[in-house]
Simulated assay, not measured.
Amino acid sequence: MSVSVLEKFLPENALPYLKIWFGSYPCHLKITKNRNSKLGDYRKLPDKSHQITVNGTLEPQLFFFVLTHELAHLIAFEKYGRRISPHGAEWKQTFREMLLESLTVYAEDLRPIIQKFSKSPKANFMASPDLVKYFHVPDEDELLYLENLIVGDVFVLENKVFVIEETTKKRYLCRNLKSGLKYKVNILARVKKMDNHYEK
């Protein structure tokens, strides 16, 4: 895929950065349908070329952010060799430099969040509450972040009903009301709160 084809998925002024970053590296770039499990993916192929996939349904700024994340893998592997850790120090440094280099591509209210994130880039987008909240605009279904609920609150996630039993900093211990099984759920999961409340 030509880099120029990406333009319709990108925020304004992003394309010049991608042309520099892709350079002459052999890379297969695929735009995919929405995937709930991941926003993007990078693979080093056996023939020493690279493959990057990004969800085509992402908002332009998030698309560019995810593509930058995946491209940082490509550039780090090319620069430091194949033995580096996928999300190790070399990748973090590469990703940090790319984010700061392209900071003006992002909206003014997003730039401080990107700058903060770049100080210690995370492997998982969900590990950055500020970014998750910025890109997840409340919708008509009245979905809430799990962190907005308390112990005893009942909620629906992926068509299953749970009750919160314990709260921690990053994950809540929740019990499936039908099976009785307990799960640790990320506090940034988007859930629908039910009216009933359970007391221990």
Rank of each mutant, 00 (worst) to 15 (best):
R111V: 05
K169V: 11
K169C: 06
L146P: 01
Y42D: 03
A107W: 03
K170A: 13
D130Y: 07
D195N: 14
E90M: 14
F135I: 07
G180R: 14
K38N: 08
K79R: 14
K160I: 02
A72Y: 01
H197A: 02
N13M: 01
F155N: 13
G180E: 12
T168W: 01
V161D: 08
G56V: 02
Q51C: 09
L99R: 05
V161N: 08
S128T: 13
A123P: 00
A76S: 14
V132M: 08
Y134N: 09
R171Q: 11
A14F: 02
K116L: 03
V151C: 13
R175P: 01
E97V: 09
T104H: 07
I52C: 02
A127Q: 13
D139L: 06
I31R: 12
P26D: 09
L15H: 02
T57S: 15
N124Q: 13
L74E: 04
V163Y: 01
L71M: 14
A14V: 03
L143K: 15
L103Q: 00
E97P: 01
I31A: 08
Y80W: 12
K48S: 11
L110A: 03
N196C: 07
N34E: 10
S128E: 12
Y198E: 12
F117A: 12
D109R: 09
K116P: 00
W21K: 12
L67K: 10
F9D: 05
K19L: 09
T32I: 03
A89D: 10
L143Y: 10
M98C: 01
Y25M: 05
V191P: 01
R175D: 06
A189C: 03
A89W: 06
A189Q: 09
E59F: 00
A14W: 00
L143T: 09
Q93D: 10
L181I: 10
L103H: 03
Y80D: 06
E108D: 08
R43E: 07
L18R: 05
Y172L: 13
P26M: 07
K8R: 15
S128I: 04
L74Y: 02
R82E: 11
D130Q: 15
T32L: 07
I31D: 04
T168R: 14
G23K: 15
Q93H: 11
S118W: 02
E166N: 11
S85M: 12
I187E: 05
G152V: 13
N176K: 13
P112I: 09
G23M: 04
I31H: 06
L146R: 07
E78G: 02
S120A: 11
Y134V: 07
A14Q: 03
L149T: 13
F95R: 11
K92L: 05
L100Q: 08
F117K: 07
E90H: 15
H136P: 01
K79H: 06
